[in-house]
Design a protein around this nucleic acid. Structure first.
Lengths: 353, 353
DNA sequence: CTGCGTTTGTGAATCGTTTCAATTACGCGA
DNA sequence: TCGCGTAATTGAAACGATTCACAAACGCAG
């Protein structure tokens, strides 16, 4: 039924070895022979059977990527970076969506291992258990993304959320703000607590600055709206003069409550900064200052670590890269006439730990 | 190096056939033997080699999905639906992101064919050329998504954008609006021209209704903002009393310009409806009416068509499913006190053509 | 015309799993 | 104890591409 190299060989009047050579080492075969083979391939509509090739090679030509949520721009950007770097190495990326579900995460991990992928990039949902290490030891390199792997002995590419929080609040302080509020969702989320820790650090450096903590139910626009409304209701003297929201969705909700549904001016009365720099931030009524993460670079780098790990079979030495976030200053923190220069954005520098 | 069934068989003191039986037809093998085999598998850390299995089977256990843009919520929802249905059939979905790039689209198609996937779901970027049909004839079922395949003899799951446009404008008319404007990006995009056609059809049914067409540069918030500003500048009598935007991003931009940066009231002065029902629409300052597409159902159905096509090898009969969009009424088209009932949302009914 | 180096082509062996016809073991009634 | 039906197990063949040691063909200097 399906056409195999054997059929192609017969049609072209050569041996299977020659067909394989035409496909894989064209320089080894005479030009006219090669043409005959190519013609035969076209005539017969031959398509390489990847399974057979893989079986022989021992490894597939792709790498697996398991993300928490394909709908999250952070992960799609990350995936793009990974795809690009993989393509440069002649590999393709198979995207698996765990949807924050342990079962599915495990299923994809299993699938990828059975497929003998070149390696797996994964942003694990919960704890990193020994199953990861076992997979690695059986021969499939693993790199954690958006999660530090130091204590698990796994390579990883992570983000410095503490630095991000520090950047945001330092910027607010540098803009002359003193009564700062941090608005954040469940502190059980590592990213949230890290960003808060960074905020605290920045505030602690200035004795005259106060840092209030306002808890939000979740990291959503609606939760932000609720917080914004509460702020709006406060007597003017009781309000913070700056708000650092744990992510942009919250910030957008706050912005809506303050400016559109209320009468508080941003940034004159309250300066506002978010986190993630999602595309909506730039196009908000009042363009939102934010902290940007080099998502694409993370994917790109993760593939690099993977390749390096795949080579050094044997003497395994996990590597860890932590990226620094970048401050993006827009109108929500600096008055148009305020004169303050847009605070040089910190470059995103990889820092090996 | 790597552990094979042979090693497992040796360890358990059985034949390879038995190991395979334990894995694939457990009912055929004695319980105590099965336990011995399982122990051996665990001891040795055996992992099935999918390539070998596939080689034998002739087909892989996954289906390929090529989308235009993983960052687009429409496609991620679609992917979720496809994954769910595939899982019910014991298959997994490999997601390929063509990023609206012909090269990448072709590369993924080739990869999937070489992998002998069960079938391919694809939202093609440009024209559907004969290469699709060739792939199908070679034995890999193909189903087009978000694109009608009737004229190419390929199965497809599409959306009725004309009906969507009709729904939107009919709703505006039913709400008492008469001077309606359609705001849309490049009409070269099929979705845009279809929605416009639907809008025209609805308007044509009411002689007293006028339909203005305002071209936008793109389907983005910024383009919408520009259009909104233009509307705001018009003398009051010159303004439409309702706007149908070709997508939600445009609508949000318009909303911002009218309400937040201007003094036009929505829906009192101008009613506004978008298209796509992205999550931001529900959380806009003024929650946006929109037209929702059953994205998840599309992916789900596409997998069904794929499975059916895979069975009927031989007597191939392409099937076409067109889904109807659904009207979502929110505050941007009905005044809170306006009394108009929230117009029963049309059910999303599959209609085979 | 011989010998040797180079280029080009050959085909059997291999990868690891599944399948299936054949074999063995087992239980039980006669 | 024999025979027979059922259950359990076996092992060799097959899937299709790649590799590699080897052979053939060719060119050319001596």
């Amino acid at each position: 039924m399906t056409v195999s190299v054997k059929d192609v060989a017969a049609r072209a009047g050569v041996s299977v070895g020659t067909v394989s050579n035409v496909l894989n080492r064209p320089e080894k075969v005479n030009e006219t022979t090669a043409r005959r083979v190519h013609d035969a391939i076209a005539d017969l509509g031959f398509v390489r059977n990847d399974a057979a090739r893989q079986l022989r090679e021992g490894r597939s030509r792709s790498i697996g990527l398991v993300v928490l949520d394909v709908a999250n721009p952070f992960f799609t950007d990350l995936a793009r970076g990974a795809e690009n770097r993989a393509a440069e190495n002649g590999l393709s990326v198979l995207l698996g969506n765990s949807d924050e579900n342990d079962e599915r995460e495990k299923a994809y991990l299993e699938l990828f291992e059975e497929q003998r992928v070149h390696g797996v990039l994964i942003s694990p949902r919960g704890e990193v258990d020994e199953s990861f290490e076992r997979i690695r030891r059986r021969g499939t390199p693993i790199v954690l993304v958006d999660r530090d792997g130091t204590e698990h002995g796994l390579s990883s590419v992570a983000l410095d959320d503490v630095a991000g929080g520090y950047l945001a609040v330092s910027h607010l302080i540098a803009s002359g703000r003193r009564r700062i509020a941090f608005v954040g969702g469940p502190v059980s989320i590592r990213q949230v607590s890290d960003r808060l820790a960074g905020a605290r650090k920045a505030a602690a450096e200035h004795p005259e600055v106060t840092l209030d903590i306002i808890l939000a139910d979740s990291l959503s626009v609606l939760a932000g709206r609720a917080v914004g409304e509460e702020l709006r209701e406060r007597p003017e003297g009781d309000r913070p003069d700056a708000v650092f929201a744990a992510n942009d969705l919250l910030a957008i909700g706050i912005l809506q409550a303050l400016v559109m549904l209320g009468h508080v001016r941003v940034p004159e009365d309250i300066a506002l900064i978010g986190y993630d720099d999602i595309s909506f931030s730039a196009t908000a009524v009042i363009p939102l200052s934010s902290v940007r993460q080099p998502s694409e670079l993370i994917g790109y780098t993760a593939v690099d670590l993977l390749m390096r790990e795949a080579e050094q079979r044997g003497d395994y030495a996990p590597e860890h890269v932590v990226f620094q976030p970048e401050l993006v200053v827009r109108a929500s923190t600096v008055s148009p006439e305020g004169g303050r220069e847009g605070a040089a954005a910190a470059e995103a520098l990889p820092a090996a730990h």
